[in-house]
């Protein structure tokens, strides 16, 4: 069987998406997404716009949110706190990696 080659694309290269598309791609419903925006865990490109659009990277956050929501049965505010903490951990891990890289490894 011939297997055709699939090019992987950068998530950030995908175009901005509507809240309906974000809901479809993340598995969350629009009410959940609005909650996450209200609690500050997710940011639309222009929060004052009549209909929100999101950068394609938001899919990653929203998918994580969907897993946490389903797997831990979290309520919206708890979910927003968990997402914010995960983001902080990710930033700290990046910082640790940077410091580790810059530190000479004496033998």
């Amino acid at each position: 069987m011939k297997v055709e080659l699939t090019e992987a694309i950068w998530i950030e290269d995908s175009s901005e998406i509507s809240i309906a598309e974000l809901a479809e791609q993340s598995g969350l419903d629009e009410a959940n997404l609005r909650d996450l925006v209200d609690y500050g865990a997710l940011s639309p490109v222009d929060p004052t716009a009549a209909s929100w659009t999101f950068s394609a990277e938001c899919v990653v956050t929203a998918r994580t949110a969907c897993r946490l929501l389903n797997d831990f049965e979290l309520e919206p505010n708890g979910l927003a706190v968990a997402l914010t903490l995960l983001e902080r951990i990710r930033a700290l891990e990046n910082e640790v990696r940077r410091l580790h890289a810059e530190m000479p490894h004496l033998r």
Binding site: L5, V60, R97
Partner: peptide, 14 residues
């Protein structure tokens, strides 16, 4: 699957 050059730790592709 082909991953383009420049992918680093933590990046997501689709």
């Amino acid at each position: 699957v082909r991953i383009p050059r420049g992918a680093v730790d933590g990046q997501k592709l689709k």
